[in-house]
Design a protein around this nucleic acid. Structure first.
Lengths: 226, 226
DNA sequence: AGCCGGGTGTGATTTATATCACACCTGTTC
DNA sequence: GAACAGGTGTGATATAAATCACACCCGGCT
């Protein structure tokens, strides 16, 4: 277990900021800070879950085996919890999490995490708020995904990464074309085609993973129109 | 406001069972029990939310306007909370809830609900567990939906209603063909065709809304195969 | 160097499903 | 009882996107 100090950690979760010094001391003794390289699995579907994972730095994907391929359920950036439903709800993990870039994660004993919820209302409240935000985001995305056609969803996804994750019109896209397909529910080839079309229209430019959004307005139009 | 007694209510939520008599007394004064007929809206997307809704009896759909049509996000049966994310997370509702059968709902003041989370760890814990269960269910469904083709998802949906909601192989389906389409992300006509095909193969029979599953095994096969 | 695997772009073809069009049936309303 | 609205089944057609097929590029490896 890496030596680490929860008490003075500047990257505490909003929930953990509500813990008392005593509670933070206990947390420190019952958690582990682990680093992951790009592509490494943080926790795996079907494995026994004994910890809640807190993504302290970096970006990760949450994904699940589907009948045909992997489905990417969410792409998240720190700070966020990764596995509350999978750790609290079931004995075995219902989905996997994989680092998309260099990442650091705190693993917290599930029983301790549960104790904090019972003991500390402000902690519990923050956890609930995070779960609620995720649900609203998911519903938004899944509604779009089931009704828009491919150019629309890809446009929405590009905008979402640009705005929510990178806060920049130029960024290193952390997913391959195939993974974008797994995320939005389409094929690798279709993603490729949409991207070249968008570049052809002068709405974006890209060089492999490096994407620049030139015309956010028109990208938004394509996203809205479906 | 209907006269009602939370303290002695036999249909309290698992979370509310953890409230003290004093808390239940406060709940009683700050909540309202309302009955809805089939088709009536329980709360509406874009409206200001000031209450958390608890579905006490009945079945409801949770749905959201999409770019093309309504998307049905979940169909739930009592007992369950309906609008935690939409009430807690945002000032205005991000989705609607509509009664699918005769239904009774308790509306609880959001501030009071928040206080209970802060005050009562066991209450908060149950709320978290409910949110987690929903997330796992949703992920399962959305994974299937984005990878299976229409016969597969319809089969999965029939099985799900039969097992999870009605616990019976014969039941009154609470959705129209068009709504099934909105739920699984397909068109009214495609749902119709799948249903007649399934009936043709002797896997189900139906008369309008009344559905009987004759061969759950083969239905499961179709669901799994996609 | 040569080879490999993983990721990519793009044309040709196929296919599932949406869409359009229509008929029918039911309960409700005037 | 006629007219109507909402829900339904089903054929014909159109179409978006999957699939198949190939060539390309790049970084690591022996």
């Amino acid at each position: 277990m890496a030596t680490h100090l929860c008490t003075s950690c500047p990257l505490k979760s909003p929930a953990a900021r509500n813990l008392t010094d005593e509670e933070l001391g206990i947390l420190e003794k019952n958690s582990a800070l682990v680093h992951f390289k790009k592509g490494e699995i943080i926790f795996r579907e079907d494995a026994l879950s004994t910890n809640v994972a807190y993504l302290r730095t970096g970006i990760a994907k949450i994904h699940k085996r589907g009948p045909a391929a992997d489905k990417i359920l969410r792409v998240v950036k720190a700070p966020t919890y990764l596995g509350i439903p999978t750790s609290m709800g079931e004995k075995i993990n219902q989905f996997s999490a994989t680092a998309l870039v260099e990442t650091s994660v705190c693993f917290i004993d599930t029983n301790l995490f549960r104790n904090f919820i019972f003991q500390n209302g402000a902690f519990a409240y923050e956890i609930i708020m995070e779960l609620c935000r995720h649900e609203l985001n998911d519903y938004q995305r899944f509604t779009s995904q089931s009704q828009k056609q491919v150019p629309g969803i890809v446009a929405e996804t590009l905008l979402c990464f640009s705005e929510k994750i990178f806060a920049n019109t130029r960024f290193q896209f952390p997913l391959t074309r195939g993974e974008i397909g797994d995320l939005v529910g389409t094929s690798r080839e279709s993603v490729s085609r949409v991207l070249t079309d968008l570049a052809g229209e002068g709405i974006i430019t890209y060089d492999a993973r490096e994407i620049t959004i030139l015309d956010p307005e028109r990208l938004k139009q394509i996203s809205d129109k479906g």
